[in-house]
Design a protein around this nucleic acid. Structure first.
Length: 434
RNA sequence: GCCCGGGUGGUGUAGUGGCCCAUCAUACGACCCUGUCACGGUCGUGACGCGGGUUCAAAUCCCGCCUCGGGCGCCA
């Protein structure tokens, strides 16, 4: 396989070896076509069945769909071939046969249910929409990393096994760590903050988080991927600028570099990069606008968290990405700083897509006394977080940050109906394997 | 966790008490076909989630369980 050529690279006149999966065999009698597929595309292999060696013809035309073949031959220009070229084979080697009955059809002629696809993810990602989704997901992460580097961030990795219980909110997965109680981490939050106090100042992380909530919706996972950002010497408004920049960078990169994949997903030229300058609504304005839509049976009151229905009503009203700022302090975690002019309000924000929340962030409390007080107010024991709080005694700069759910970003960007489409091997309430 | 709707050949489906030893597409097998590109044609193969019940008769109705999807809750 040393001299393997990718199908997209095959030039007329060359002698090549292409290797890939049997996408389809079309046997017309005296002539037969084998469509071979690799990660770069498809190429046609022609068998003149009466003229070629029987063994060669059999090797090509009797291969079952999705078998792995290596074909050596000459590339010829052929206007009648799908890609304008075809391979006239000299030899065909069966590298790995596929059983004739497949658990799903990778060519996409017959749909398969999501659960069938997830049970057979390898086959599902062989071709078509799923492959396009994960290629785009990779491009998003590439563009996001590049954007972070361009604004001076250092990529970090924080522990996923942690000792302290919840920092608030969610249920955690417990585990035993050499006889000690431990948990799968719900978020890099506290660790990334500790690193803005280091000489790194500006950090980001792309990594998994684990939440043990028994939710059962098309937009929640128990293992998700977060893009976390945290920076010293910025406030929540600047954090929102970076947040918007990251999102735009991701959309632009996909628009520019993933035309083929967008085509497969049915976008063609209709893929739109959002306009810069996302509206920034205060929580109070958000509530008023939701109430004004009349979509909710009961009016929201100040202090309520936004119900799913309210988020959707507001999303439809705004019609694009937007921020919600100035959340009530009491529904934001302890590490979010309160507004100086009104301690009832926090410097926390959310970035919303019309369908759902994408990002949560804010300016952090960097003052030791206020931080410890915040723990107590939320009923948490500051002692348990001493590894965190004590570093606020040694020069913790003002800082702000946020975190994206990667799967939600992919899902909303591509209009996917279920978040599981955006993860290779989703972990949800029911699914632990594969 | 609550509510609603599903589970029928390998895959996706039709079928709401007898007309069903179950429809269609695709797949698979055999044969025919020299330019297909979702190739075409002929013939064939293959299924009612599990357990219990009602009935002369159950894919269809009832109960329990398992399982999938949607809405909500929980969740940032």
């Amino acid at each position: 396989m040393d001299d393997r050529t990718h199908t997209a690279d095959a030039e007329p006149g060359e002698r090549v070896t292409v290797a890939g999966w049997v996408h389809e065999v079309r046997d017309l009698g005296g002539i037969a076509f084998l469509i071979l597929r690799d990660r770069t595309g498809k190429i046609q292999v022609k068998f003149a069945t009466d003229e070629m060696d029987d063994e060669l013809v059999d090797a090509g035309t009797n291969a079952s769909r999705e078998s792995v073949l290596s074909v050596t031959g000459t590339v010829e220009e052929e206007p009648r071939a799908p890609t304008g070229v075809e391979v006239v084979p000299e030899s065909v080697e069966l590298l790995a046969p596929a059983e004739p009955e497949l658990p799903l059809d990778p060519s996409g002629k017959v749909d398969a249910d999501l659960s069938t696809r997830l049970d057979n993810r390898t086959l599902d990602v062989r071709a078509g929409e799923s492959k396009a989704i994960f290629e785009i997901r990779a491009e998003i992460l590439r563009a996001v990393r590049e954007y972070f580097r361009s604004v001076g961030c250092t990529e970090i990795n924080t522990p996923k096994i942690v000792a302290t219980g919840t920092e608030g909110g969610t249920e955690l997965f417990p585990l035993t760590y050499f006889g000690q109680e431990a948990f799968m981490n719900q978020s890099p939050q506290l660790f990334k903050q500790l690193m803005v106090g280091s000489g790194l100042e500006r950090v980001f992380e792309v990594g998994p988080i684990f939440r043990a909530e028994e939710h059962n919706t098309p937009r929640h996972l128990n293992e998700a991927t977060m893009i976390d950002f945290e920076s010293a010497f910025i406030d929540h408004n600047e954090a929102m600028d970076v947040c918007e920049g990251t999102l735009l960078a991701a959309y632009e990169a996909v628009a520019e570099n993933c035309q083929e994949q967008l085509e497969v997903l049915g976008y063609g030229d209709s893929f739109a990069v959002p306009d810069a300058g996302f509206p920034r609504l205060t929580y109070e304005e958000a509530i008023e606008r939701i109430n004004a839509t009349g979509e909710l049976e009961e009016q929201l009151l100040w202090g309520d968290d936004l119900p799913t229905e309210g988020e959707k009503a507001l999303g439809a009203d705004v019609g694009g990405h937007y921020f919600i700022t100035d959340w009530p302090s009491e529904i934001k975690p302890f590490y979010i700083q309160d507004r100086d002019d009104d301690p009832q309000l926090s410097k926390g924000f959310d970035l919303m897509h019309p369908e759902m929340e994408l990002v949560s962030g804010g300016q952090r409390e960097h003052r030791y006394d206020a931080l410890v007080e915040g723990f107590e107010q939320q009923g948490l024991d500051p002692e348990a977080f001493e590894y965190y709080t004590k570093m606020f005694k040694y020069g913790m700069p003002p800082h702000a940050g946020w975190a994206y759910g990667v799967e939600r970003l992919v899902m909303t960007m591509l209009g996917l109906g279920n978040i599981r489409e955006a993860v290779l091997f989703p972990r949800d309430r029911q699914r632990l394997s594969p």
